[in-house]
Amino acid sequence: MAFSAFATGTAKEQAPRRKSRIALLLLLPGILYLMLFFLVPLVSLVITSFQQPIPFGDIGEYQTAFKWENYVDVVNTYGEHIFRSFGYAILATIFALLFSYPLAYFIGVTARRWPLVQNLMLVLVIAPFFISFLLRTLAWKSLLSDESFVISGLKALSLMAPDAHFTGTPAAVIFGLTYNFIPFMTLPLYSTLERLDTRLLEAGSDLYSKPSMTFFKVTVPLSMSGIVSGVLLTFIPAAGDYINASRDFLGGTGTQMIGNVIESNFLVTLNYPAAAALSIILMAVILVMVTVYVKRSGTEDLL
């Protein structure tokens, strides 16, 4: 859905009037693919979320039922984690946007005169992604551990209390999420700003508009599709992320997100109905939030 922001065409193609067997035949692989790899797993997930344990069965053995209480249980037990996940994801998205917008503007608009700089900066944005997500997060963990030069330096400058930690705190998790999703914000923004007609900015200036007013009245509306795409591409995976908040990476016991709870229920306690119910809740909340956001930002055609 959000990927349509990268498309350049705006005119709606007229639907073909005749329905041929060949067209249906060509559609068949796509339909089967969606059935097998989207619809069936989705329905299976919904069914799992209502399952109940088999009496006297093995750990991890469940039978089909309509145990809607699973949803109540997970919300009661992990409600805090659900709110925390969306809180962290919203903050990480805001920080990524604040960081990426000037960067994308520089690459896409200011650096147009220097194609070499433009290409080099784009490579710099993408280059860290040639290294594994896990390794990058582990590297940050080392850089931000108590004995690291960064934290030791901050403590030496009295900017941090001597017994304070950074890893294991919400700030560390939000930092990790922001860092890891910056390219997903920067690239859609760049793709929109790169097409920005700078004559419109000149026109704004000619009409005695302040630069800030030109920015908010011209640049931002024209780059809205990039902003929306970037926000969606950052927010959706960030809300379900379980690496940054993991106790083995940047998180601690008090920073666990819904992804960590799903992982724990799925892999450790083998409580598949709870994991499935949490996954459905995660999906539903994301869907509602994204729909409201896209409607409010006036870019419904992205959906």
Binding site: P53, T77, H81, Q256, V261, S264, N265, V268, T269
Partner: peptide, 20 residues
């Protein structure tokens, strides 16, 4: 026992996940 394994495991996980 199987029941204890499931019950205790779930109870312990709530501590690891910071849940009440």
């Amino acid at each position: 026992t199987q029941g204890e394994e499931q019950r205790y495991g779930a109870q312990y996980q709530t501590v690891l996940l910071g849940a009440s």
